[in-house]
Write a protein that binds this DNA or RNA. Structure first.
Lengths: 169, 169
DNA sequence: TTGACATTGTTGCACCTGCAATAAACCTTT
DNA sequence: AAAGGTTTATTGCAGGTGCAACAATGTCAA
């Protein structure tokens, strides 16, 4: 396209003869946060495409279902912590799932502020269909990544560890 | 007394005496797509927190600015492809940036369907402040990851490669 | 040239999202 | 027990999002 980039303003404050300027050369395609976000978005979309049309649930709903399947009756706050979602997001996903008949809400006896979210039989049946899809998807992903799969997982472990970037101080 | 722990649904297709059922034991915390999405969300949020308050721009806007800085005058469709965003998202981010005075829109002479988005001087000045923040953030991220940084990048390369999960067939 | 089809960017729409405000329940101190 | 503060879940609101529809422009074969 443009042969000579013109160098419009030869900043006199740069006395060095360095040929590459990291500020000039900055490229989104090599920026780790961008790459991570783009890869995650693609992956989530590809996975969601597997179940959205057939089962009519969204990603937040999937996360709530998966955690309920794993953990039994739990509160909204518990899902908030374990499924990396804002509590309002959890609350709304839970309401949609309840409306659809997949989960039930009950108040905790010993602490009436807490809810006890729980899969209904219909919800368990849904999970019997959803989990194989998820496991299959992960298997394909691991196969595609090859030996990089474990390394990716290890790196994600670092990024997900508490500390810098943790939800709340 | 049979010490068998109930085994609620003895799937007849599983003749083995395996003690763990991957469907029962499924845990979101070990699910690669979830881990990837959560790590990306944390990272993006942490990065956005660095510039949102001070500069008032969002992630889509940052991406548009970064690509314009790197590539010069380009169309919406070009950003759509290179910054992994829906064209409507690009269009709206560009409108906000134009309103804020950071970029200019012009119609391409040879193809009047195309726009030529371009940084204004104000936009270039903004990038002179933003890029060091981005470079610093990435440096901290790489330091935190240690040797896992390169491996993460390689794995992301696999996931971002065209093919399965590519935007459009 | 014309007419059919493709591409580009914007917008209407329904929905989702994060944040702050809120009500209800709980806890602690007096 | 009452007051003041904390925790939990929900909701109002302003704005963002994806998708489909659309108008404008371009392409190409007949």
């Amino acid at each position: 396209m443009t042969p000579t980039p013109a160098r419009p303003m030869p900043e006199p404050s740069e006395p060095s003869g360095g040929q590459t300027n990291p500020l000039q050369d900055f490229d989104l395609a090599g920026f780790l946060p961008y790459r991570l976000a783009a890869a995650a978005a693609r992956t989530s979309r590809a996975f969601a495409d597997r179940y959205r049309e057939e089962f009519g649930i969204s990603i937040p709903e999937w996360r709530v279902l998966a955690h309920l399947h794993h953990a039994g009756p739990v509160s909204v706050r518990d899902i908030e912590a374990r499924a990396d979602m804002e509590k309002s997001k959890v609350s709304r996903a839970a309401s949609r799932l309840e409306r659809a008949g997949y989960i039930s809400k009950a108040v905790n006896d010993t602490d009436k502020r807490l809810l006890e979210l729980q899969l209904t039989e219909s919800g368990r049946e849904l999970m019997r269909q959803l989990l194989p899809v998820a496991i299959q998807f992960q298997a394909e992903m691991v196969e595609r990544l090859g030996p990089a799969a474990e390394r990716l997982d290890a790196a994600l472990g670092v990024l997900l560890a508490p500390g810098p970037g943790g939800r709340k101080e």
